[in-house]
Amino acid sequence: MNDEIVATVTLQDIAKAAGVSVASVSKVLNNRPGVGDESRRRIIGIADQMGYQARTSRGQSSAAIERVTIITAGEYYSNSQFYADVIRGILDAASSQAVSVDVRLVARYLPEADSDIDKILKEAVSGAFLLVGLDDPEIIERIVASGFPAIIVNGADRSMRISSVTPDNRSAGWLATCRLLAAGHRRVMHVTLPHRTSLVRRMDGFRDALEEAGLGFDRSRDVLDLGKEGVLEYQSALAIRRALNDGRLDGVTAFFCSSDLVALGVVEGLKEAGFAIPGAFSVVGIDDVAIALYSRPPLTTIRIDRLELGRVGFVMLQQKIADPSVGVRHVDIGVELIERSTIARIG
């Protein structure tokens, strides 16, 4: 079909042929939700048959997104409710747009992850990528060099070459710590394994709250680094017992933990040592995974909308495909304090 014929095809033409409203056609051709899968496929098929070619405001052709590849660490995919929900958000958004999704699992750490991603890129002829929880600089280099459109979900490119979306981790840390300070606590310890930027940002929010309250921040005093203790996140109970035995928790009345998994371990370690929660110590986590509600006592935490995190990542990838010249940006998703039963007022 020649350019003259293509130029005469309108949304009204497609709507009439498909037996739907112009609004429905507009939603489908602009990759917006609100149209059923069957109607969406019919509209796309008719638009292709009629030779319709949408134009962006820059006069460029708007590419259709047909297949997306999620790349994430196998460890995240199999062991983490957080990442399972993020991926489900992506899958839900893709399904609403009749977009096929592949999930490719890679090693969590370099150099294995680098070689896994290199293999994925060599096999790819065309496509687009969502890097879920992967923001190592070497991995980013590989993706940028490939030229494929990509978005980082729950991570960030500090070189600002790939757009990204994360929870507002710094605000989450600040909000959790402010809640403990409001309950009268003046010696709050942050328990974390700061191996990723997102966890460092949560610690930054913790520091912000302490400094704003005039308490100052001393990392050697105020942070229990699980990495330096030689334990993993799910082993935080062991680190707490060691800190108790060594006298490092003298004066501490509350804990802000970098995740619910860490917080539940802290609660376990304190209870095993004979302390009541929240009678002796108050504890706050982050993430609001399902088990936080059913722990004993139920955990006060910061809720992250993980489904929304995945959906926003998918929409950002659509926008990048439609207009490759769109600027790089970082998007923060809001968080919410969920009050349960692990904070007690003191003083």
Rank of each mutant, 00 (worst) to 15 (best):
E4T: 11
E4M: 11
V6A: 13
T8M: 12
D13Y: 07
I14F: 11
A15E: 12
A18Q: 12
A18I: 14
A18W: 12
V25Y: 15
S26V: 12
K27S: 09
V28S: 09
L29A: 05
R32W: 02
R32L: 14
S39D: 09
S39C: 04
R42V: 05
I44Y: 02
I44G: 01
Q49M: 02
Q49A: 03
Q49S: 03
G51D: 01
A54K: 00
Q60F: 00
S62F: 00
T69D: 01
I71T: 01
I71M: 01
N79T: 04
N79F: 03
F82M: 02
Y83P: 02
L91G: 04
A93V: 08
S96H: 12
A98H: 13
D102Y: 10
V103D: 00
V106W: 00
R108G: 15
P111K: 14
K119P: 03
I120D: 07
I120L: 14
L121C: 14
L121Y: 06
V125N: 15
G127C: 11
G133D: 02
V144Y: 07
S146Q: 04
A150G: 06
V153G: 03
G155T: 04
R158W: 03
W174N: 14
A176N: 12
C178L: 10
L180Y: 06
L181K: 14
A182L: 15
G184A: 09
R186V: 14
T192I: 14
P194R: 15
L199G: 04
D204F: 15
R207T: 07
L224Y: 10
K228R: 14
L232W: 13
A237K: 13
R242Y: 09
R242H: 14
A243M: 10
R248E: 15
D250L: 11
A254R: 09
A254H: 08
F255W: 09
C257M: 10
S258C: 13
S259E: 11
L261T: 15
L264I: 13
L264K: 08
E268N: 14
G269Y: 11
F275Q: 10
F275H: 15
A280T: 13
A280D: 15
V284H: 04
D288N: 14
R296Q: 06
P297G: 06
R303F: 05
R306I: 02
L307E: 05
G313F: 06
Q319M: 05
Q319A: 07
Q319R: 13
K320Y: 03
D323S: 07
D323A: 08
S325D: 10
V326F: 07
G327N: 06
V331E: 04
I333H: 07
V335K: 03
E336N: 08
L337K: 02
S341N: 10
R345Y: 02
